[in-house]
């Protein structure tokens, strides 16, 4: 038996180790977008962050990833020119329940439009194939319709709707937990490929 699936490469993207020395500055520039900033400062009010803050946070997370085996962070880069596009993170894998929350975020709108679907498939392949998870979920909402639609197209279903739990563009929105089970993903992929 061989493992034919490539986890860290797809047609246009590669998943690489996050490098705080060069990636933090790019990410800091992305944090003008609150949907990006929210994935760095999980509990706080999403706001533009300095390079110092992003670097410190990522270094702490990478250290945590080495000390524990339930945290994962990858840099998403374009294969052609190694441009840093964003990240894939699984900040807490619940091994005993075989479940994880994850986030794929891409900083620039045109890059998101071009590569989000592909990055999402890499995230699912890593979580559901390599980590062997039963299910994964992420958050989205009507405040980012492109991301929500991409998740639905990949087979995710809206599982939880936390009313009025996100503030964007001068109004409150529902935070939607989008979920996919390993079994659903296999069936969805079989349908896509046939």
């Amino acid at each position: 038996m061989t493992f034919t699936t490539q986890l860290f490469q797809s047609e246009n993207l590669v998943l690489e180790a996050y490098d705080p020395e060069k990636d933090a500055a790019i990410e800091a520039a992305f944090t003008y977008d609150p949907n990006y900033a929210a994935v760095i400062d999980w509990d706080g009010v999403p706001h533009p962050l300095t390079v110092f803050e992003v670097k410190k946070k990522r270094e702490e997370e990478l250290k945590k990833g080495v000390e524990k085996d339930n945290f994962f962070l990858f840099a998403l880069r374009r294969k052609a020119d190694s441009q840093f596009l964003g990240i894939l993170t699984l900040p807490h894998v619940f091994w005993f329940n075989r479940h994880a929350f994850f986030k794929v975020v891409i900083g620039e709108a045109e890059m998101r439009q071009a590569y989000f679907d592909e990055a999402l498939q890499m995230a699912l392949r890593y979580g559901l194939e390599e980590l062997g998870l039963y299910s994964m979920h992420t958050t989205s909402g009507e405040y980012e319709p492109d991301v929500k639609q991409a998740l639905e197209a990949a087979g995710f279903k809206a599982a939880v709707r936390q009313r009025e739990n996100v503030y964007r563009s001068e109004k409150l929105w529902d935070r939607i937990f989008m979920e996919i089970l390993q079994d659903e993903w296999k069936i969805h992929n079989a349908g896509v490929q046939s």
């Binding site: 039963y134 809206a158 599982a159 709707r161 979920e179």
Partner: peptide, 9 residues
């Protein structure tokens, strides 16, 4: 407000 399927084992 909803549920995550089978999240506790």
């Amino acid at each position: 407000e909803g549920h995550l399927n089978g999240n506790l084992l």
